[in-house]
Amino acid sequence: MYPAPFEYHRARSVDEALSLLSQYGEAAKLIAGGHSLLPMMKLRLATPAHVIDIRTIQGLQYIEDRGDYIAIGAGTPHAMIEQSELLRAKMPLLSQAAAVIGDPQIRNMGTIGGSLAHADPAADYPAAVLAAEAQLVATGESGERVIPVEEFFVDLFQTDLDEREILTEIRVPAISENTRCAYRKFPHPASRFAVVGCAAVVTMENNRCSDVRIAFTGVASTAFRDTGVEDALKAQPLTSQSIEKAAALAAENDELEIMEDHFATEDYRRHLAKVFARRTLNQIASAF
């Protein structure tokens, strides 16, 4: 229940946080909402010697319309994303995912940046940002670096972020009028993390799918885009038959490391991925 001792540093700016990061290197961890790091520290699974608080940085909590995309400050808590009118209008997928993270208290404290940087393979945001084709802005001492989301999730709890970088902004393209999206999740009954979470974004032109993006979380060692399902739907009409056929291909990529635990075997997870692909796509179809 009590973390091991550490030194605490309150960063007032991204620059200050970066210089602390470079000073303490591997011995330091960033804390924002604390809902990924602190639970690990309490169980002493993480024992950083230095904790750098970036929640104290002014101006990391925002959701802004930048025309082509919506910019979300990395320090924005889930509750703000859930309730954002702007996101609900222009990129509801993020709000939908945020709404089913943890519980209300966790949504008040936990931040999108913290969740993404932690890269828990069963967290909700990873599927949403993948399907949204987000861009992630990492700030380092040499400036900003924009990481396309498909390069971000490297492995279990591993991202493309350098140890001396801070995730500062998430950019999600706004959806067009003929685009619909949905996030559906089968939660673990205890942790409420996703056993399977499916995010989908579908754009229709002339009654055919012109763009289909499907991503899963909870299923494999990292969240992933499922091109098998996507390809099967492209240029197809969005009918229950086409959806059924495409969804059956979910989580079939041989390269995936499907997770397995007492609650869900590999087979069951793969099966749930198909069910949730279908249900998510059906929800989208009914929204057109």
Partner: peptide, 29 residues
């Protein structure tokens, strides 16, 4: 305090008007 995994909510208080789990916050925060 009812658990060590931010699960049970027995430690819920309001911080600046928002319900938070006070077991998953440092006092310095």
């Amino acid at each position: 305090v009812g658990c060590d995994t931010s699960s049970c909510g027995a430690c819920t208080i309001l911080m600046d008007g928002k319900a938070v789990k006070s077991c998953t916050l440092l006092a310095v925060q």
